[in-house]
Computed example of a mutant assay.
Amino acid sequence: MYAYAQTRPNTPAAQAEPRDRNALERLRDWVMERGGTERAFAKEYWDHHETGIYVEARTGEALFASTSKYDSGSGWPSFTRPLNPDAITLHEDDTMGMRRIEVRSREGNHHLGHVFDDGPRDSGGQRFCINSCAMRFILRDRMEAEGYGRHLPIVDGEATSVASR
C-alpha cells in the first residue's frame, strides 16, 4: 500500500471555500453516490476539534465520536474507530490502481471514505479517513435534543463503543 503526501494550503483563505449550498450538494452527490473524494485540507471537518458526534449527512445515522478523532496529517477527518461498528459496512475497492477498503454507511449505503491500517497502534491501528461532506457534526450540548443522547457516555469518555439497538 502506498501513501502520498498532501500539502496544506498556505493561507486561511485557501482553506475556506464559499458555503454555496448547491456546490455542497453537488460535492455530496459526487462523493456519497459516486464514490468521489473531496480535496484534502479544504473541507469543514479536517481540522475540527469540538466535542460531539459525526453523523451521516443524509440519514443522520451516528458514525463517529470526537473522542476517536485525531490529526492523521492526511487533510481529511480521521478516526480510530466508528461510534458503533454496526453503523458502517466495509467493502473491497480496487479503483485508483490500488487496493483499499471502502467505508459505507449501513443505513444509507452511502460512500463515506476508506479505512487504512496506518492509524495509531495504541488505538487499534486503523485510520478511518472520511470525507467531511459525507457527515454532519452534532455538538455535545445538542446531542440529547437531536436524539443522540445514548451516545453521550462515549463523548464524555465513560465508554468506548455503543452496542447496536
Rank of each mutant, 00 (worst) to 15 (best):
G108F: 05
D117N: 12
G125D: 08
H110Q: 13
G124P: 06
A145V: 05
D117Y: 06
A145P: 01
R136T: 14
D141K: 12
V115N: 05
G124E: 10
M135P: 04
G124M: 09
D117R: 06
E102D: 08
R106P: 00
H110M: 13
D117P: 01
G125V: 11
M143L: 09
D117K: 11
G124N: 11
S105F: 13
E107S: 14
R106H: 08
R106V: 05
R104G: 04
M135G: 10
R104C: 13
G125A: 09
I130R: 03
D141Y: 01
D141G: 05
I138A: 01
G119V: 10
H110V: 07
F137S: 06
G125C: 08
V103D: 03
E107C: 03
S132K: 12
G108M: 06
R136H: 07
C133L: 11
H114K: 10
M143G: 01
P120N: 12
H111L: 05
N109R: 08
I130Q: 07
D118Q: 10
S105M: 10
R104E: 07
H110S: 09
E144P: 00
R104M: 07
R127E: 09
H111D: 07
D141E: 15
E102S: 07
R136W: 00
G125K: 05
G108K: 02
P120D: 12
E107M: 10
H110G: 03
N109V: 02
L112W: 04
A134K: 02
Y148R: 00
R106F: 03
P120S: 09
Q126Y: 12
G125M: 05
A134W: 02
D118N: 15
C129T: 14
R142I: 03
A134I: 02
C129D: 14
L112H: 05
M143V: 05
E146P: 02
A145C: 09
N109C: 00
F116L: 13
C133T: 15
C129I: 14
D141C: 03
N131Q: 11
R140E: 15
S105K: 09
E144R: 09
S132P: 04
S132D: 13
A134S: 14
M143K: 03
G119T: 08
R142L: 12
H110K: 15
E102L: 08
M135K: 15
S123R: 15
E107K: 11
G119L: 08
H111W: 07
